[in-house]
Design a protein around this nucleic acid. Structure first.
Lengths: 260, 260
DNA sequence: CGAGGCTACTTGTCATGACAAGTGGACCTC
DNA sequence: GAGGTCCACTTGTCATGACAAGTAGCCTCG
């Protein structure tokens, strides 16, 4: 609740950047001005500025004040992990239709990813995800049994809200993920659910997520309509990359083979 | 040449982590031990540790030493930008076959991306990229004229070495990029060059790169065989994401529609 | 034998001070 | 008007010191 000073300074500068008080290209207040403004020493001020540099929001300096490089604040971890969270962050309506939830023995690929033995019980969940009512993605997720069993809880309806929010509430620590992107052709099931022709290209995200200590809890194969969703990476030589999902309001590429 | 102390401490710890002297899961030396080892105060030691935390290499702590989370050092900016650089970082052989280099008026999509007017002259470059002799990616890049003209330099052969290395040598500051990923179907040209069936899914990376001050210099549409190359994002709640291209030594997904 | 408390360690946060190195503007001279 | 120098600002890096908050291990008591 009582946030450290350097975080309050960083948050204040982020707000000022994102709402345009500090436009792209403009110089930030100097360190001594910020010290005066916050009645602070250079330590917390420099720590706040360092965080913004690392995020790529500001850059340059040394003998002059840094300048604003972008006004786009990076998407947090949870926004990349949860489709619902991301949709709502855009002000759009996420939806889900559960096609299957089943406990079954793990097949090889999944066992490898989850670091369990082939045949160990896991929980498979298949959902069609919608954005403002439009089929957008098929999500085929497998959970280790200790986490997946929570989804069979009588009170939980996977169609009603975010699985990740629910699991977090149950004490499941999902805080590290690895996402792998490639392209696949829509198989008959994909095609039918996503309303695209068979063989149409889909953007696939294979994700493995787990705890901070490296224990995997879920493995997922998500297939997106590339005319609706893309993924972006913004990087720079002197800043950490920023990554996110992006929504394409209308299909932008007329070379797409499927009909509107 | 005379690197700051905190960077030397960080580099030393990265080396120890990546070569296994500090395996994943093990605790780092305490701050006071590092102070003693480097004859330094807590300031530079904490700054070094903070950099490793931000990269996701270490985590945890507060009342105890942090632990190693991963031994994978993030790929630098240039490794994601340059296919040649990336291939060599894996110990593989990059290749290129220039199909076209031409000065022509910019079409709408490219003009928008490069923040120039439609019809302004640009330089288009189309290359087939190979990895160990295998067609892997088609790269369709457009440069603003002031940069593209350097590629017509008599002495420069785009088949002989990295364009980015060459441009850097010519003083072109490419240090910021935005990459957008989606999937497209191989058109007849794509199919022929990449040796896949027409309509096969390709992983597309559209990239815009430019200077630190935001001036765009290149826009590219790269199409990868998804059975050879994927892109990965590793992220965590308390660390910056790490992004990179990845090589798939053999096609891992038997659902791929194209023949081996 | 188990639980609780205490101590000695750890990291997190902040202040003060100092000096090195970079930048931009003003002023002076040619 | 242009070029060079100097000064006052800036940020970068490091040291010392202090206190808050977390953790683990050990000891004592029930």
């Amino acid at each position: 609740m009582d946030e450290p000073l350097y975080q309050r300074i960083a948050d204040d500068l982020r707000r000022r950047i994102s709402r345009g008080d500090l436009p792209v290209g403009s110089a930030l207040p100097s360190e001594s001005q910020l010290c005066e403004q916050w009645a602070a020493s250079r330590g917390p001020v420099r720590q706040a500025l360092s965080a913004l540099r690392a995020e790529g929001l500001i850059g340059g300096g040394r003998g002059r004040s840094p300048v604003v490089r972008t006004s786009q604040v990076p998407q947090p971890f949870e926004t990349l992990l949860s489709f619902s969270h991301w949709a709502r962050s855009l002000g759009r309506t996420p939806g889900q239709r559960t096609l299957e939830i089943a406990r079954r023995p793990a097949r090889q690929e999944v066992a490898d990813a989850l670091e369990i033995d082939e045949g160990d019980p896991v929980v498979d969940l298949v959902r069609l995800r919608l954005l403002d009512g439009r089929p957008t993605m098929i999500e085929r997720t497998t959970f280790v049994e200790s986490v997946g069993r929570l989804l069979f809880d009588f009170a939980f309806d996977p169609d009603s809200r975010s699985i990740y929010a629910y699991l977090a509430g149950q004490g499941v620590d999902l805080s590290v993920a690895r996402h792998v992107f490639d392209a696949v052709a829509a198989d008959p099931t994909d095609a039918s659910l996503l309303e695209v022709p068979e063989g149409a290209p889909l953007l696939r995200e294979r994700r493995r997520a787990g705890s901070a200590s490296g224990e995997p809890y879920e493995y997922s194969d998500d297939r997106y309509r590339p005319d609706i969703v893309t993924f972006t990476i913004e990087n720079a030589e002197q800043a950490h990359p920023s990554v996110g999902r992006a929504w394409r309001p209308t299909p932008a590429d007329s070379t797409q083979t499927h009909p509107k």
